[in-house]
Nucleic acid binder design. Sequence first.
DNA 1: GCTAATTCTTTACGCGCGTAAATTTTTTGT
DNA 2: ACAAAAAATTTACGCGCGTAAAGAATTAGC
Lengths: 341, 341
Amino acid sequence: MSEATIKNMEEFSAVSGISRPTVSKYFHDPDSVRQSTRERIEQALAKYDYRPNIFAMNQNRKLTKNVGIVVPLLSDPYFAEIARNLEQRCIDAGYRPTLFSAHGDPNLEIEVLDNLRSLKPAGVLLAPLGRASHRDALEKFCDDIPTLIFDSSVDQLGLAFVGSDNFQFTSHITDYLCRTGEPPCFFEMKTPANPNAHRRRQSYLNAMLDFGFEPNVVSVDGEGWEFEEIGRQGGLAAFASKQFTTNTILCSNDRLAIGLLTACYELGIKVGRDSDCAIRVAGQDGHPHSRYTCPPLTTISHDYDGVSTHAADALLAAIDGHVEPWKSTRLQGKLILRDSA
Amino acid sequence: MSEATIKNMEEFSAVSGISRPTVSKYFHDPDSVRQSTRERIEQALAKYDYRPNIFAMNQNRKLTKNVGIVVPLLSDPYFAEIARNLEQRCIDAGYRPTLFSAHGDPNLEIEVLDNLRSLKPAGVLLAPLGRASHRDALEKFCDDIPTLIFDSSVDQLGLAFVGSDNFQFTSHITDYLCRTGEPPCFFEMKTPANPNAHRRRQSYLNAMLDFGFEPNVVSVDGEGWEFEEIGRQGGLAAFASKQFTTNTILCSNDRLAIGLLTACYELGIKVGRDSDCAIRVAGQDGHPHSRYTCPPLTTISHDYDGVSTHAADALLAAIDGHVEPWKSTRLQGKLILRDSA
DNA sequence: GCTAATTCTTTACGCGCGTAAATTTTTTGT
DNA sequence: ACAAAAAATTTACGCGCGTAAAGAATTAGC
C-alpha cells in the first residue's frame, strides 16, 4: 500500500485499469459498478491508498454526501449522546456528518445554519434552541435544505419532527408518583427554553385532574441554559417561601432536578422514598448523569436509540427521494425507578 | 440586500466594480486590499449577499482556513466545554473550526484523523485518547499536518503541548487535605485512560512523603470511559474490603469522585467535613458537574480559559509561520473548596 | 509635479472531479 | 451462437475559484 503516490483520480484510474468516469461512479456508489470492476478498483485501492479530493468532489455535484447535525447545547450530555448516535447512523449510511452546536445562543444558531449552507449539505438534523430561535431564519433554512427537526418541535417546520412524547412522559411519571405517595408538585422554569416544557406542565395538570388532586405548579425565575443553577436557586427560594405543598416534587427536566437536589442538600432536607426522608424528587429525561446523583434520580427516560434511529432514517429516506407529508413522531419514555422517588 | 441573485465570484466582481482576482484577494484577507477597495466590496456585499463557494475555494489552495478540533469524548462536559472555547477562538481568528470526537474509541480516533486529512486543515487541535491511541498513526498525522496537542500529552508529539500541571494539581489538593484533616488515600483506576493519571498518582506519593505520611493508593478495575460507574463499583468494592485506611479520599478525577459519592450514598456513608460526616471526598478537574453533587465536590479546577487560549494561540501562531521548538505548557489549577472535603 | 512604489485589471491557465453523449465492450437470456 | 441489455470507455466540457504574469492605474514621497 505504498507504491508511487497517486495524486488524482486520473492517475488512480490508470493504475487500476479502470476508466476515470467509472472510478468516479464507484466512489459515488460502489454498488453502481459491476462486481468484477469493483473488485479491481478495491484491489488498486488497497495497494495505492488513494482518496478522492473532497473539495473537488463536492464542488460540481448538485447533491453532496454532507449531513449537518445541529444541537442547541453540546455541553449538555443529553445532546452529546444523541449527537453521537446520529453521527454513527449517518456514517453507516455513507454520509459525512458534521457536528455543530449553537451553545445556547440564538445568534450562533443562525450563524451555524449560515455556515452549514455553504457546505451544501444533502440534509440537516436540527434540534432547535426552541423559544429563542429566530423562527423566520429557521423557516428560510428549511425551505432551502432538507431538514429534519428533532427533540424540540417548531410547528410544521422541515421535513418532519421526531422527538419524545412529552405528554406521555409526564402523565406516566405523575401517575407513578400519585400511586406511590403524595401527589407531586411540579417544578419548572417560568420561561423555559423550549416548548417541551409547556407540554409537560399541561400533561401534569391533566394527570392531576384525572386523579382528582389539586395541582401545584412552582415556576422559578432564570434565563438561559444553566438549568442546574436555576434549579438550585429556584429550589432554595421555593422552600423558603413554602411553595411546595406536598412532599413530592416532579421536575420539568433532570437538570433542574439535579439543581434541586443540591438545594435540598444545602437545606439539610433528606430526599428519597424511605420513611426517614422528607421529600421525594423526580426528574424527566433520563439524563446520562441522573444515575449518579445522591440519591440516584427517579426519572423517565427518552428512547435515545429510538429517537436517533427514527430521525436519521427519516432524513436519509427523504434525501433518497422518499418524500412524505410532514409528520410528527413522538416516542414513549421509559420510567426509571431509583431512590429519589 | 436582495437584488438579482449572484451565483459566483465573476458576477459579484461585476456588480461590485472590482476585478475578480482582487475580490478573491479580499476574501482571502480583507486587509490585503486598499481601504477604498475594501469599502466598495463590502458595500456590494451588503447589497447582494454573496458568499464564495467553499469547495472551490479550498480545492486549489495549498492552505485552507480549516481547523480541526478533536477530543476523545464529547459527551464528557469537560471536553465539551474546552471544545466550545477553542471553537470560539478559532472563529475569532478567521478560521473555520470543525469539531470531532473519538467517542472513546481509538479506532474512531484514527478514522477521524483520516477524514480530517481530506479537509486539508491549516492546523489541528488534538486531545488524544491517551494510552489507547495508536501512537504511530498519531505521529504520522502530526508529521503531515500542524497539530497542537492538548489535555493529554504524548511525548514530543506535534507542535507543542498545552495542558494542566497535574503535579501541581495533586500536590496542591493533597496539601490542603493533609492540613485540614486526616491525610488522603488516593482513589484511581488501575489502567487509566491517559497519562495525566500517572502524574497525579506520583504527585500524591511525593506529597505524602513530604508530609511524612504513609501513602495509600487504591486502584480499581475497569476499562473504558465510564468513569462514574467505575468509581461507583470500585468504591463499593474498596469499602467492602476496607481498603481506605483514613477517612479522606482523593480521587484521581472528578468523574471517579462522582461515582464514589454514589457508592457512599448507597452504603449510607455520610460525606463531608462536618463532625457528623464519616469521610471526606475530593476530586480533580473542576468538572462542570462537580458543583451540583451532594455534597458539592471539593476539587481542583483546570484553567479552562487559560488552556484554550494558550492552545489556540500557539496553533494559530504556528500556522502563521511563527515556528518554535517543541514546548510543553502546563497551567496551574485552582482549588475549589466545597462541602465534600 | 515628478518618479517610484503600490495596487488593481486583464488575461490566461489549472485544480480535481462531475457529468453527459456517443461508442465499444461485456454480459445475459434463449 | 445470437441479439438484446447492461456496463465500461472515450471524449469533452464545465464547475468556481486560485494564482501567476504583464500591463495600466492609483497612490505616496519628495
